[in-house]
Design a protein around this nucleic acid. Structure first.
Lengths: 141, 141
DNA sequence: TCTAAAAACGATAATCATAATCGTTTCTAT
DNA sequence: ATAGAAACGATTATGATTATCGTTTTTAGA
C-alpha cells in the first residue's frame, strides 16, 4: 500500500466539501478552491475525491445531469433529489440505517458495506413555482 | 407532446430488458438485439431507454464501472451491487415502499415520485472466492 | 539541516459512455 | 395511396472523469 503524504490542497478539498450542505459537484468544489489557491487544478479535486471515496470519508450520493454529487457526511442519512432544479438535500428516512444493512447481509449471505437511499421528485420550492406558472426545465437523473 | 408511433425495435428493447434479472447495461441489451436484428443500432437502445425512463417503464438502478444498469421491473424493490464482480441483484428491504415515499413527502413538503435504495458490498459468491485466495479486482461504484 | 526517494501537483491529453445529428426508412392518419 | 411525422442506422460530438508526465512538495533518514 502506498504511503500517504500530507497535502495542504487535499485537506482543502475535504474542508470545502464538509463545510457545505449542498452536495456539490467536483466542478463546484474546484471553483471554490480556485479563489483561495489560484493555481488549483481540477485534476486535484477529482484525484482526492477518488481517494476519499476509497477511504470512506466521502460518498457519491447521486448523479444529476451527468455530474456526480458528493457528500462529506458519512453518518447514515438519505437524500432527496429535485428533478426540476437539481438540488440535493438530506432527509431522514426511518429504518434506513446500519441495522438494515446487517439485515440484508444476513438474509442474502452478502457483506454489506453501506447503502444509498435517494428519493426523486419535486422539492417544495419548485412545486410552488410550478403552481405560479413558471417554466419547467427538468434535469436528468 | 410528440405522438408516439409503434416500433418493432422499441418493443424489442423493452422485451430484452424485461426478460432478464441481470440489470444489464445498454451495451449488453444491444449485443442481444444485434443477434436477432443484424442492423440494430446502439443509438436505438439509448434512445429508447431514455424514452422508457421518462415514461417510468424503466429505471436506472446503479452505475457500475461508469455504466448505467437498467431495470424493467417497476414494482418497489431494492438492489445489491457487488463491488467485486459488479453484479446487481434484487433484494427486498423491509420498509422501503410507497408508504415511505409519502412519509418523506409529508415531512419535507416535496412531491416524491420514486426512490432508489442500493446496498453496496461483496456478494456471497465473491466472499467465498476471496476466502479461497482468488485475486480480487474491484469495480468502481 | 540536507538529501534523495516517493508522493502530489498542474496542465494537458485521452477515454468512453451517452447524446445529438442527419439523411433514410417506417408508421399512420387521412 | 400518400404526405407528414416518427424512428431508425451510422456517425460524430459532448463532456465528465481519468490518465499522463514533467515539475514541485513532502518526508524519512543521514
Amino acid at each position: 500500500m502506498k504511503r500517504l503524504n500530507f497535502s495542504k490542497k487535499r485537506d482543502a478539498v475535504l474542508k470545502v466539501l464538509c463545510s457545505t450542505k449542498t452536495h456539490p459537484t467536483a466542478e463546484w468544489i474546484y471553483a471554490q478552491l480556485k479563489q483561495e489557491y489560484p493555481d488549483f487544478s481540477l485534476g486535484t479535486v477529482y484525484r482526492n475525491l477518488a481517494l476519499f471515496k476509497k477511504q470512506g470519508l466521502v460518498v457519491a450520493v447521486a448523479n444529476v445531469n451527468g455530474q456526480e454529487r458528493y457528500d462529506g457526511v458519512t453518518a447514515s442519512h438519505s437524500h432527496f433529489v429535485c428533478k426540476r432544479c437539481g438540488s440535493v438535500f438530506d432527509v431522514e428516512a426511518p429504518g434506513a440505517d446500519f441495522e438494515l444493512d446487517s439485515r440484508i447481509a444476513r438474509r442474502y449471505g452478502c457483506e454489506v458495506e453501506r447503502h444509498n437511499l435517494c428519493f426523486y421528485g419535486t422539492c417544495s420550492r419548485c412545486r410552488q413555482e410550478e403552481e405560479s406558472g413558471e417554466q419547467t426545465k427538468n434535469v436528468s437523473v
